[in-house]
Amino acid sequence: MTSPDIPIIRLGEVLVAGLSRELDDKTVMLFADELSRRIGDTRASTVVLDITKVEVIDSFAARMLMEIAAMARLLGARVVLAGMRYSVAITLAELGLALPGVETALSVEHALNRRAGP
């Protein structure tokens, strides 16, 4: 599989990636590689992960998301997790996974409107 299942779109300094319904292990790993390459190439300042379509996040997927955020930070970009469904949010809260250090937004639009600095 060479073309990633998760498309990454560039909007100026921002990279937006739309995660699919199912976060399976291979797709997520491939995506992490591809994303780090793109951040390096584009010197993006912000990465917005659109998770509007994601129906389940278990502790494995949560760990991957946190690792992706940490990796992006090392490359100089901040990560915003956008559009988490309320059912997923309740479940993660009950799992005890608050995703500390990961920025969040209601939607991609909100994430794009909320740019760094006053």
Binding site: V56, I57, D58, V88, T91
Partner: peptide, 26 residues
């Protein structure tokens, strides 16, 4: 997920059950 849907569980209950099962199978 399909079984939870067929049993008439609501969205939140479905999501919780699928997530718990996902932890266990992993």
């Amino acid at each position: 997920r399909a079984a939870a849907l067929a049993e008439g569980l609501g969205l939140v209950a479905q999501t919780k059950l699928v997530t718990a099962a996902s932890e266990l199978v992993r």
